[in-house]
Design a protein around this nucleic acid. Structure first.
Lengths: 104, 104
DNA sequence: ATAATAGGCAACCAAATAGTTGCATGTCAA
DNA sequence: TTGACATGCAACTATTTGGTTGCCTATTAT
């Protein structure tokens, strides 16, 4: 879980995921196109995404195809974000109450 | 948005949010209790959480009360995670297909 | 009034991060 | 078979990060 959060913390990595979301199964070179970064930098980001299990790769000859794995993202939604949704209104109410108490 | 992802990337900060989720409105000293970290380290984490708008504070005499703001977390769920939920099954299907193609 | 309590500020440090460059290897096409 | 293409590996660098220590200020309780 920590690896996933860390992987998602970087904007470049999130836009790589966006790229795969737009078109799945891209090669490294394809993912590099239009980015202001060397290929090696992109490789490092992809390794981090792979280690977080957000991306799976398939070697195909001299090419490496990258596939998005949406499961960890879904799990963060389920296991983490939903926890804070429950009681969200309560928290906001309490917050508002305290902020208004400033002038007492 | 980037600030929120960055803020959530650290396990200590996530557990501070957990702490506030368990009991909202805690003081700095209360949030420090039981943590293997100095007060100043906790302060720094809380500043980052405040800058990401995940925590709001109210000064009350010499105490500083910390309140969880669940809105940015909710927004990540809405604006980011949901994007990857749509087409999730399609992505998984494509992934499976490609993985099975290995032996061709 | 004064001691204890709650918090703030600044300098410093080690490790992690995001990026680079240079070179090597494997695969495909002419 | 040889050149071009796709990727991999390693060393190096600058910046950011997570943490520390030491000291200062403001508020409360005795």
């Amino acid at each position: 879980m920590d690896e996933v959060f860390k992987a998602l913390a970087d904007a470049s990595r999130r836009s790589l995921l966006d790229g795969l979301h737009a078109r799945n199964g891209q090669t490294l070179s394809e993912l590099c196109e239009g980015l202001a970064m060397t290929r090696q930098a992109v490789t490092k980001h992809l390794v981090i995404l792979e280690e977080a299990n957000l991306v799976t790769t398939v070697r195909h000859g001299r090419e490496k195809l990258h596939y998005l794995n949406p499961v960890p993202i879904h799990q963060i939604g389920e296991r983490w974000i939903k926890k804070f949704e429950r009681g969200k209104l309560a928290a906001l109410g309490e917050l508002k109450r305290q902020l208004e108490k400033r002038d007492e």
